[in-house]
Structures are given as C-alpha cells and as structure tokens.
C-alpha cells in the first residue's frame, strides 16, 4: 500500500509518506507539528488542501473513491456513557446495519481480544482509564480494519497501564497483521512499538526524518531494558531535538 500527499496549508507542508501493508509506523513530534492533523487526513475526517492520498489496495466504491477499512482510536476513550461496553464496541457494526445477534457476537469477541471478557454489561463510568481505552481499541478492531489509526491513545494513562497496553497492542498487531499508524509524543513508546519512526517538526508541520527500528518482534520487557533500545532511543531523541530546534 502506498499513500502520498502534500498539504499546502500551514498545518502540514510537503509531507510525503509511503506506508506499506502491515507496517507499524509512529508519527513522533512536538505538539503543533500536525501529527494529529495528518492522522485525521488519513482518516478522511479532513481534506488535504493540496496533494492526495492513494490507497492502491483499498476497495473502491462506485464513484471510484477509495474506501479503506479504518479503525480510529482517539486520545480520549470517547465512549458513549449511556451504553454498555458491548454496545459501545458494537457501534460501528450497528452503523453498518448488521443484525443484532451477529454484531453482539463480534463485539464480545473483540472485547475478549483486548482482555475484557466478562465486562460486556459494564458502563464506561464503572471502568478504569486503562479499561476504557481497551474498550475503545476493541471498538476500532471490531470491523477487522486494514489500518488502525491511533492518536496518542495512551498519553493519559499511568506508566504501568501504558506498558501493558503497549505489549497487548503489539501482540494483537502481530496476530492480525493490520497496518498501524500511531501518533505519540513519547520517544520511548515510539521506539518500543514501531518498525519505523517518522520524526516531525512544527510550524509548519513537516517530516524531518524517518528512522527504521530494526529490532525483531516479539518485543518484550527484555527489549525495553536492552542496550539496543537505549541506543535507538538516543538516536530518535537527537532527531527530535533537532526537529524542535529547527
């Protein structure tokens, strides 16, 4: 899969990215570098003012517009407080018009996949921050998307919860093989998770450097404490430092 676009506005300038099928790519940068804007353009929520997105492998609709299957995870869990965890996860299927029993079955499977079996009837207010984020991820996975777009999903969580969710996300990704575009402002998180870190700079938002993280998967706590990891983090930090200074 390949996509390119350039956006002429102040938010993003001259962004040119190729993302392959099954990639795990992180967008790393200071606030205001347009990484969230880039993600929202990928999601089709906003239009680029110049340039284009190509989805060579996506299904095209009758008018020839690409209809990539997307899952989106917001910075906040963004759950409907009036609905149970199961109903929240089943929402995308409900919007597709899937029958109730079928969508509830799939939503329950998705919940089990993120480790929340048994919490189907819980309301969001009864769940912890980490559990709400898991529900949010289950909702993004329930449609079996080709691409999972994540906008700083773990930024508001404590470190222990974040590490666990990092590991769970990696194992789900390895199992399912979808593409992940992960927005973060954490060097450590981006290095731990991704195959490729795209470092961005602000005003105007642009890509400064792409750094390949050539460490094998599965990655675990041993990788987190390894010398390789520390060295990679230092490299990425340096690029980020240059990006902020630039």
């Amino acid at each position: 899969m390949e996509k390119r676009f350039t956006n002429g506005t102040l938010a993003l300038r001259g962004v040119d990215l190729d993302i392959g099928r099954g990639d795990f790519l992180s967008l790393l940068g200071p606030s205001g570098c347009g990484k969230s804007t880039l993600l929202r353009i990928l999601a089709g929520l906003i239009e680029p003012s110049a340039g284009s997105l190509d989805w060579p492998t996506a299904v095209h609709d009758a008018r020839g517009a690409a209809q990539p299957k997307l899952g989106f995870v917001f910075q906040e869990p963004t759950l409907m407080p009036w609905a149970t965890a199961l109903a929240n996860v089943a929402l995308p299927l409900r919007l597709e018009g899937m029958a109730r029993s079928e969508r509830e079955h799939r939503a329950a499977t998705a919940l089990a996949r993120v480790g929340l079996a048994g919490f189907e009837t819980a309301y969001p207010r009864a769940l912890s921050g980490g559990m709400k984020m898991r529900v949010s991820i289950a909702r993004a996975l329930v449609t079996s998307p080709d691409i999972l777009l994540m906008d700083e999903p773990f930024a508001a969580l404590d470190e222990i919860t974040r590490f666990r969710l990092n590991n769970d996300l990696l194992s789900i990704w390895q199992e399912a093989g979808f593409t992940v575009v992960f927005v973060t402002h954490s060097v450590f998180e981006s290095v731990y998770l991704s195959e490729r870190v795209v470092v961005m700079a602000a005003r105007p938002g642009r890509v400064v450097r792409e750094i390949a993280i050539e460490a094998p998967y599965p990655r675990d706590e041993a990788f987190r404490t390894s010398a390789d990891y520390a060295a990679l983090c230092r490299t990425v930090s340096q690029s980020l430092g240059e990006a902020i200074a630039a």
Binding site: G44, L45, F72, T78, M80, L91, P92, L95, E96
Partner: peptide, 14 residues
C-alpha cells in the same frame, strides 16, 4: 454531543 464521537460516526459513514 462529544465532537470525537461525532467524528467517529462520520468515519463509519453514519
């Protein structure tokens, strides 16, 4: 209604 939820509805072509 929450703006992110509205975006989610748009994303799924509600």
């Amino acid at each position: 209604a929450d703006h992110n939820l509205r975006d989610l509805f748009r994303l799924h072509r509600a």
